[in-house]
Write a protein that binds this DNA or RNA. Sequence first.
DNA 1: GCCAACGTTGGC
DNA 2: GCCAACGTTGGC
Length: 160
Amino acid sequence: MNAAATRYWLMKNEPDEYAIDHALSAPDATIAWDGVRNYQARNFMRDDMQVGDGVLYWHSSCAEPGIYGIARIAGKLRPDASQFQPDSKYYDPKSQPEQPRWLTLDVQALRKIQPISVARLRQYPELQEMRVLQKGNRLSITPVDEAHWRFIMDLINAQG
DNA sequence: GCCAACGTTGGC
DNA sequence: GCCAACGTTGGC
């Protein structure tokens, strides 16, 4: 896959940590997307994400997992400070400050939507190739095909 | 709360 | 550098 061409992403977050409401109420509706501790997800942030890329804001580990909002990549790739904080749940004792292992960047929430549950997404044949819907998928950041993005935007527009 | 699927770790 | 054991994710 040519990940460099990806302009759309899906980013999972537990609503307990960074719900879409929390993001929207932050200054500039922008939050640092920290706590990523998976190399594939980190590499997407480091190598492929560009400012302005579209983001489907996913809530996971909750009663109704699915898409809860729309956001955009707002930039500022930098070391994730929580990896050096021993009291953080994201502390990584093996990461060295001179060579940080984990990164964070800013994500700006644009709008909250009427949630689209994973169960509903599965009903559309057009979306069955979406990575987030594949069996065993655990990656918290996945690229989204433009066709899938457009289909979902149409769903959102149709429901007003 | 269960558990399948997956990533990481570490002994060899 | 293999691979079994372990820990985590996250939908169900």
